[in-house]
Design a protein around this nucleic acid. Structure first.
Lengths: 355, 355
DNA sequence: TTTGGATTGGCAATCGATTGCCAACGCGAT
DNA sequence: ATCGCGTTGGCAATCGATTGCCAATCCAAA
């Protein structure tokens, strides 16, 4: 407030500077600022005043080096940070970031794609000592040669993918059960013939969701051959190409219910069949997965399975910080956060069959 | 490959360990690994072999402390990381992240919202010595009391907002000119009466885009009172409420062209007027701004002004790294990246007026 | 063989904060 | 006045990598 010590100082003041200003030893400064109670009140106040006067801010790099910890969590994003309508990964990222900063942690993004040298970068970061924990978002464990992220000995939590089998605590949606609910709702509306439009091959979500569809149909007593599948890719384009195949079917051969691996697929599908002259939900009912915000504003509005992204992020952060602090010697391996079915204009009840 | 030195070693190997293994001094190890040419080839190979054998990875914390640099760029995100259809900020973030990691930099996210203590956190990070530069995304300069981010003396680049007046190099879209093009296109299609649905008050983009609309109408020779404005908020809800006001107008009083501050606004507007029984573009033509990917899959598909997000991210990274390395003593204060007008089904030509 | 210059590699200081250890000090009790 | 205990604060080592400086070494030229 009074006068600035140095408006454009090159090097920031250090504990030594503060100590000199306050007339005490550097160790006293450090303790005064970080160990309440360890230093007598009058001395502490003197130090605090000196620190404020000099505009002292602790050098985190030096601090981290000394204490061997960083309060920094690394986030590994999926192969491809696809930007479409489904933004589950981003929503979880937002919630995790909020939870982390609220607890005084920083967050570094390790990657936004997954090219050749990306895993190397991730591992260098993990082994470089700047990281206190890792959040793995919808990603396999980064590895290079015979070295992988698990060996870094860092607290590690998987989001979206269930890796409990590999002993990695996982925070996941109940993909299979949730999509099953959607299928049961469609059966309840009179649908008996289904298409499932798949995501990328070998993807965890695709496998789980397809499984959920199959199980639900079985529970409803429908024979397995009432379900056909079409290949998709979790993107608009996958929905579009599946729709073209759907349109190519003879009208009476078209299943009345289409369940999609995610919202983008559903959106691509709907747009294409509408352009092809069909009505949604008049001719075909469509359900997506993820709960993209824009779904409510599509025409027709999109039925979907809403993931609880905010809670997933929070839970994962609780886990990884707990592990980093050693509070969780045996973290739960599976934390399942339930989804919520949202039925909108894109589905309708089938008129009772007179036959 | 042969046998692991210690599968669960507590402390990672240091230069000292490598030096012992290779039979040289620590300084030699350091130089061998970071200064090509400084160390004779045979020695260098010996060191490299030892490092590989021990699985040595440099401790970045120590390295950063010593060299007083971090190759880490901090990203400050907007007040609210709104997740809707318009994802400009996220697209730019993705592109910037890709450019940064490609150049060996790390990226820390300072914040995902802007609460009371957020700015404190941002400044602590900035002054804490762990940061080499800052990318400010659609955000004002964080400050707390009489201390602000500018005083940290860090390379700083603004994205989305033009802060060249405050001497901050800015990478921006040509908001005003681009939306002007859209307006001119609509005038070219025969539209003469316009509504502009605004974003949040005092927002940079809102101001620029409204200005662009006004200037374009003026250029086209239309009187200012052919433009009315409605309040929005950059979200679906803003479009929705504006649409309700639009529907409340007598049909002959409804302007035939609606220009929205962004795509989310347009999407909310379209959905609501469609539900209200109007046709788009039959009764009203609508244009958004941002180029949300999902726009192409709406019904009708959304006309918009596409921002070149990928290029913006790259440009900003080039700037901030150049400044950090001292390569850019006088960085350009304004880098304007042009947008591209995309006309889709949501606009149509007005039939020639017989009167 | 000697000399000069270039190359190589080691020693030790340094970055800034933290912390184990201990000396000094104060205070109350004997 | 002395002792003993608890409190306070200083000294110096430490975290791990980098780098200025210099000694040792080598090679070619004289």
């Amino acid at each position: 407030m009074s006068k600035k010590p140095a408006p454009d100082r090159i090097s920031a003041p250090s504990v030594a500077d503060v100590a000199r200003e306050a007339g005490v030893a550097p160790s006293t400064v450090s303790r005064a600022l970080t160990m309440p109670g360890r230093i007598a009140e009058p001395t502490r106040l003197k130090v605090e005043a000196a620190a404020r006067k000099l505009g002292y801010i602790v050098n985190q790099t030096a601090r981290n080096l000394r204490i061997g910890q960083t309060r920094t969590i690394m986030i590994v994003l999926p192969d491809e940070l696809y930007i479409g309508a489904s933004q589950t990964v981003l929503e979880v990222l937002r919630s995790a970031a909020a939870a982390l900063t609220a607890r005084g942690y920083s967050l570094v993004i390790a990657n936004v794609s997954r090219e050749a040298q990306t895993d190397e970068h991730i591992l260098a970061l993990a082994f470089g000592g700047t990281i206190s924990g890792v959040l793995l978002m919808a990603s396999p464990v980064p590895s290079i040669g015979d070295r992988n992220l698990l060996q870094a000995g860092l607290p590690l939590v998987s989001l979206h993918f269930d890796m409990s089998a590999q002993n990695v605590p996982s925070v996941i949606s109940n993909d299979s059960a949730a999509i099953g609910e959607a299928v049961e709702a469609l059966v309840g509306l009179g649908h008996t013939r289904f298409v499932y439009i798949r995501g990328r091959p070998d993807n965890y979500h695709d496998v789980e969701r397809l499984k959920g569809v199959r199980l639900a149909l079985q529970r409803c007593g429908l024979p397995p051959d009432e379900l056909s599948t079409m290949q998709g890719d979790f993107c608009f384009s996958g929905g579009t190409s599946a729709a073209q195949r759907y349109l190519a079917l003879a009208p009476q051969d078209r299943p009345s219910a289409v369940v999609c691996a995610n919202d983008d697929t559903a959106i691509g599908f709907i747009k294409t069949v509408l352009d092809g002259g069909l009505s949604v939900p008049g001719d075909v009912s469509v359900v997506g997965f993820d709960g993209a915000a824009v779904g409510a504003f599509m025409t027709p509005s999109l039925s979907t399975v809403q993931q609880s992204t905010a809670e997933m992020g929070r839970r994962a952060v609780d886990l990884v910080i707990g592990m980093a602090l050693g509070d969780l010697p045996r973290p739960p391996l599976r934390t399942e956060v339930p989804c919520q079915l949202v039925l909108r204009q894109s589905v309708r009840a089938l008129p009772a069959d007179p036959s």
